[in-house]
Design a protein around this nucleic acid. Structure first.
Lengths: 193, 193, 193, 193
DNA sequence: CATGAATGAGGGTTCATTCAT
DNA sequence: AATGAATGAACCCTCATTCAT
């Protein structure tokens, strides 16, 4: 096979898309700017992604997967629920603070209707284990008897809020990380310990 | 610049913009579609708003003001903090559930970078009184000793999460409204009562 | 109504399309070249014709109508069949020789699959009277008992062949016009007179 | 330039081009579709034909040659003029009816301006013998004293018209073949026999 | 020679904005 | 002030052709 499609180039395009979306917003990001940023010809983008929408969906999945990896790679399968949730919390906000651009783009993509339901499903899958943990904790009466997607969504919402403050006030970063989790835990736990 | 003749037309344009943004997404909403929806000529839009960005910012402010009115118009200046916060909470989510389109557009606008910092500042202003309430409550040790913008932001994040569930499961609407507030209150209060 | 859509501009666009198609071929005729030739902005073309295909179909109909007018406007409703057919023959080839470009484009359009069946039907309508004449002449045994569309098609084919020679040898133009008709008439008449 | 390795591949490309042109029209036929249809890589097409135009011209010549072969291979060098012309007529329309796709493409190519005058000259050459026959017949007063290219052109025009009807009404195919020739013969012969 | 990724000029079309009416 | 035709820069994508493998 002559000159195989290069993973490097594909990744360069995804990264470039991320940067351009972060800078100019998903709406106003021409594919030409993405190609230029990636250092390839305009047409090349379309040998790696059939359409701009395809690129957007691929980027969404790729960020979601990376995030999943950050959360789940060393996730402790044992120990008190509180500790395990705090681990997730910290992994999440640390990732978000380390990759503010990526997080910003993920937020944009999450509301954009270019991202298909299928992509959303794929992106959600790795987080199923968290849901399982939550479910178990509800049954064992550690967490409140709320629908567990609601608990997960609350966690996400509070974590993103927290990240906003961590980014805005880097000096207080550690403090916000902690009080953010405290708010979440007290909010959803049966007994605050 | 003398105010253009008809406030009706201006409002019709804002409303039309909201509808079109809700249906097609902020990105894919041509001004021509907005004019058509408003029942005016394409050019007319530009006598009421100098540019499309102006229209978007005006819409953002108008929604924010309406929301502020919904929250603050009958806000009880007396009574226990918990009750007063719950009043706000309920007013917020009720508004969101009554105006899902408007809420959706507000979400879109909040991440769009067309909305200027100035608009965001203007949109925040009416909520200052809430902040004052929070500040007072912190000093009187009713709420946790967190930065009060953090508490406000947490409230907003949880309320929006809650609204999402209320819209998704209308039958459980009342339930979510309640448990949403409980999560928030336990999260930020010194003593859950 | 502000600045009404101008028939002049519409016609200029049709004429420009004809010229550009004649020069560069239907396939390789960018709309930008048509706009330029018509002396309008690129976008203007699309306020008069929704798509390029629309323009092509409109051009086809317009040429067909013009041709129909050239043939039928003074068509003699009386007299010997031979004379009446010769009138048509002459009107056709005279028009074709006077408008070689237009004829050329009509030929291109006739095989192009951009032209819809509906357009073809509309374009055929004015020629129905000729068919009626042919049918009558077959019944009265002036013409051979062939399907009359076949006679019409033969006439067209021979006329276009004839026009080719008239254009190629303008000095002999009159001669070809005559012998062309003779070939046709002897071919389809019961008795050559 | 040494002939490239495989004549098979060259022919496969010509055949593929014919199929793709027939299906999608000359205008909308990308070289990539032709390569795919031929089962070769995109680049390979260009080792057999320097440009797309070259391919088109080669296809034109190839079809013309094949047609010439169909007409001339068993052309009777003896016998009455009428019989010999009828032989040609039948050979022509039979070929056209047996290869409708090929005929269709030939029609498209004949009006396309991609085909060079040189190609047209080459394509005409094998038909010279017919012209010679016509010329002889005119001198011996069997045919009318018309320019013999005009007679040839008329024959071609009527034959193509005839083929159209043969393809459209296969059940009447034999009938059209016959009356088509009759129209032609009466049109150009001095004495219809 | 065969392959198919890479290229970038153009293609048709959209759209925010202007301006003649 | 209101209208909507006019404008032309940009957009996404295609495709003939080149060239590294």
């Amino acid at each position: 096979m002559a000159r195989p499609k290069s993973d490097d180039k594909r990744n360069a395009l995804l990264l470039a898309a991320e940067q351009v979306f972060a800078e100019r917003g998903l709406a106003a990001a021409p594919t030409s700017a993405i190609s230029r940023q990636a250092g390839v010809a305009e047409g090349t983008l379309f040998t790696y992604f059939r359409t701009k929408d395809d690129l957007v969906n691929a980027l969404y999945r790729s960020i979601k997967l990376e995030l999943a990896d950050a959360l789940m790679a060393h996730f402790p399968r044992q120990g008190p629920v509180r500790d395990r949730l705090e681990y997730l919390w910290n992994a999440f906000v640390d990732w978000g603070v380390a990759n503010p651009q990526r997080l910003n783009v993920l937020d944009q993509l999450s509301v954009a209707d270019i991202v298909t339901d299928e992509s959303k499903a794929v992106g959600y899958e790795p987080f199923a284990e968290i849901e399982a943990l939550a479910q178990h904790s509800i049954r064992t009466e550690i967490l409140q008897a709320y629908p567990c997607e609601f608990i997960a969504a609350s966690m996400k919402a509070l974590a993103e809020t927290t990240m906003g403050f961590m980014n805005a006030y880097p000096a207080e970063s550690g403090l916000y990380r902690k009080i953010g989790f405290d708010v979440f835990w007290r909010g959803v736990a049966r007994k605050a310990d």
